[in-house]
């Protein structure tokens, strides 16, 4: 199973094995990883699963949809490597993916 490394706002690393096909958001909320709220459960309707993707992994991700782009506009303190983790599906190629979580989602 691919491993996703969730890095808390305090720098703590939480490696989690996430099944292929699940989203990066699901890997966090299903396993007691604090820092990703995902209030809407992955419907791209709340912008509370914002993460910063490690620059080394950015190019391996599918591009943002208009919807994700529009919603990201409402996340706090975004950067060019900001993504909504509910829109990132885990694939075998993403084994080792590193995402950093913001200080707050609200």
């Amino acid at each position: 199973m691919p491993k996703v490394i969730y890095v808390g706002a305090d720098g703590t690393e939480h490696p989690v094995e996430v099944p292929v096909g699940h989203s990066v958001m699901e890997g966090a909320v299903k396993n007691r990883i604090e820092g990703i709220d995902a209030d809407c459960g992955g419907a791209c309707a709340c912008a509370t699963c914002h993460v910063y993707v490690d620059p080394a992994w950015l190019a391996k991700l599918p591009p943002k949809t208009d919807m994700e782009d529009a919603m990201l506009d409402f996340a706090l303190v975004t950067a060019p490597n900001s993504r909504l983790s509910c829109q990132l599906r885990v694939t075998p190629e993403l084994d080792g993916l590193i995402v950093r979580m913001p200080v707050s989602q609200h």
């Binding site: 099944p19 096909g21 909320v29 299903k30 396993n31 007691r32």
Partner: peptide
């Protein structure tokens, strides 16, 4: 929510419906 949407359509696997991994309950 996915039951009447993606799950019925067949584009959302049953496994993904579960809100938490099994370990969550044990650890909680």
């Amino acid at each position: 929510p996915p039951l009447s949407k993606a799950y019925l359509l067949g584009s959302f696997e049953r496994e993904r419906l579960f809100l938490k991994a099994d370990g969550f309950y044990r650890e909680s």
